[in-house]
């Protein structure tokens, strides 16, 4: 079974973001970029499926600027066999990414597609579900456990208040939540080897997909800053303040 895994290049999760002075967007100039953390978990899951003998080939795919090839090379170093880069410099919304991935799914015919549940830049949490709908496939979102069993896959999902287990027919779309696994670090020899692995470059036009969106970004602002309050000296003072000043008790 072939496994397709989608990755996204985003701002590194440790970087404190800045809003541009003209409020047009977040400032990404000279900011450290990395693979989206949820995508790292997706890659790890795909690689583990291969190590278990469930997957025969792992194909990594990304949509983004030329620099996004760095993240594909990371995926290759972590154990993906080959990569597809759909190159575009435009702002690509979840729907357009899902349309492009649906074309890749049609072409590659994977048994399973694994994505991160959301990217930490736009926080949309949409692409996997949209891909599933466009491909006419079932979805197991926010997965914390994935067990392939013949022509089915059992997915345990992180839902509000607990866990839910569902069974999906294959092929299926999985989106990874935090507890699915702990991603490994790429070893230096694997990073060297990854440079020689095949990486195909395509454009949205090659797939006949229009990436323009009907959603426009009017403004980006910093959230209202919360002011720190006072230190209290004792439990009695705390209770007094909560009762008489904040009036929440």
């Amino acid at each position: 079974m072939k496994v397709l895994v989608a990755v996204k290049r985003v701002i590194d999760y440790n970087v404190k973001i800045r809003v541009k002075a003209d409020n047009s967007d977040v400032d990404l100039t000279n900011v450290k970029m990395a693979m989206n953390p949820f995508c790292e978990i997706a890659v790890e899951e795909a690689v583990r499926l291969k190590e278990k003998g469930v997957a025969t080939e792992v194909v990594a795919v990304t949509v983004g600027p030329k620099a996004a090839q760095e993240q594909l090379r990371t995926a290759l170093a972590l154990g993906a066999d080959r990569a597809i880069h759909i190159e575009t410099d435009e702002r690509v919304e979840s729907l357009a990414v899902a349309k492009l991935l649906a074309k890749v799914v049609e072409e590659e015919q994977p048994g399973l597609v694994v994505l991160g549940k959301q990217a930490i830049d736009t926080d949309n949490n949409q692409t996997g579900q949209m891909l599933a709908a466009l491909s006419g496939l079932p979805q197991g979102t926010f997965a914390s456990e994935v067990v392939v069993d013949g022509d089915k896959v059992n997915v345990t999902r992180e839902i509000d208040g607990g866990l839910q287990t569902i069974t999906l027919s294959l092929p299926a779309i999985i989106t990874a939540d935090l507890r699915l696994n702990e991603p490994r670090y790429a070893k230096l020899p694997d990073i060297m080897k990854a440079k020689k692995k095949p990486l195909d470059v395509k454009t949205p036009g090659d797939y006949g997909v229009e990436v323009a969106s009907k959603v426009s970004l009017l403004k980006v602002e910093s959230p209202a800053e919360r002011q720190g309050g006072v230190k209290v000296a004792s439990v009695d003072e705390l209770i007094d303040k909560l009762k008489n000043e904040a009036k929440v008790l």
């Binding site: 919304e93 979840s94 729907l95 899902a98 949309n124 949490n125 949409q126 692409t127 996997g128 579900q129 949209m130 891909l131 599933a132 709908a133 466009l134 979805q139 979102t141 926010f142 999902r157 992180e158 839902i159 509000d160 969106s213 009907k214 959603v215």
Partner: peptide
């Protein structure tokens, strides 16, 4: 919620609109 997030993007994609 985890239900809304799970279900609504399917509607959006099938209607060819953004969410």
């Amino acid at each position: 919620s985890t239900t809304g997030k799970n279900v609504l993007p399917r509607l959006a994609a099938l209607k060819d609109v953004s969410q």
